[in-house]
Computed example of a mutant assay.
Amino acid sequence: MKSRIEQLQEYLKEDSNDSFLRYALALEYVRVEKNDAATDCFLKLIKDDENYIASYYQLGKLYESLNHLEKAVIIYKKGIEIAQKSENKKTLLELQEACNMLLEIDEDDQ
């Protein structure tokens, strides 16, 4: 029986531009703690489809878990810009809250 990662990779062979499949693959890498592969997937997805807004939140959370807080803030801010342009209020709020929490942590450390 194939793993979810193998299944998603097969589907992507048929349609390598499917942003949902690429997002699902990145999340699967996060789930099995293949963090470098997950990061690469998210970054490539954002590069190729900057409007796939959920990627910014998930990549930011991944960076947080790896203690790359500056990178997380940068990704959240980029996602905030995209969410504002697309008028996606729910995701905008989630990204703003995540970013603000990190910025508050940064202020507390100083």
Score class of each variant (00 low, 15 high):
Met1Arg: 06
Lys2Ser: 06
Lys2Arg: 07
Ser3Tyr: 03
Arg4His: 03
Arg4Phe: 06
Ile5Trp: 02
Gln7Trp: 05
Leu8Thr: 04
Gln9Cys: 08
Gln9Ser: 09
Leu12Ile: 06
Lys13Val: 15
Asn17Ile: 01
Leu21Pro: 00
Leu25Pro: 01
Leu25Asn: 02
Tyr29Trp: 05
Val30Ile: 13
Val30Asn: 05
Val32Tyr: 02
Ala38Tyr: 04
Cys41Ile: 04
Phe42Asp: 09
Lys44Thr: 05
Leu45Ile: 09
Leu45Val: 08
Ile46Asn: 02
Lys47Met: 12
Asp48Met: 10
Asp48Arg: 07
Asp48His: 11
Glu50Gln: 15
Asn51Asp: 08
Ile53Ala: 06
Lys61His: 05
Tyr63Glu: 10
Tyr63Asn: 12
Ser65Asn: 14
Leu66Trp: 04
Leu66Ala: 10
Asn67Pro: 00
His68Asn: 13
Glu70Met: 08
Lys71Ser: 12
Ile74Phe: 03
Ile75His: 00
Tyr76Gln: 08
Lys77Pro: 00
Gly79Phe: 02
Glu81Ala: 11
Ile82Gln: 10
Ala83His: 03
Gln84Pro: 02
Ser86His: 14
Ser86Asn: 09
Glu87Val: 07
Glu87Ala: 14
Glu87Arg: 13
Lys89Glu: 11
Leu93Ile: 15
Glu94Cys: 02
Leu95Pro: 01
Gln96Trp: 01
Glu97Asn: 11
Glu97Leu: 08
Glu97Ile: 15
Ala98Phe: 04
Ala98Gly: 07
Ala98Gln: 03
Cys99Gln: 04
Leu102Tyr: 10
Leu102Phe: 04
Glu104Val: 15
Glu104Ala: 13
Glu104Lys: 10
Ile105Val: 10
Asp108Arg: 03
Asp108Cys: 12
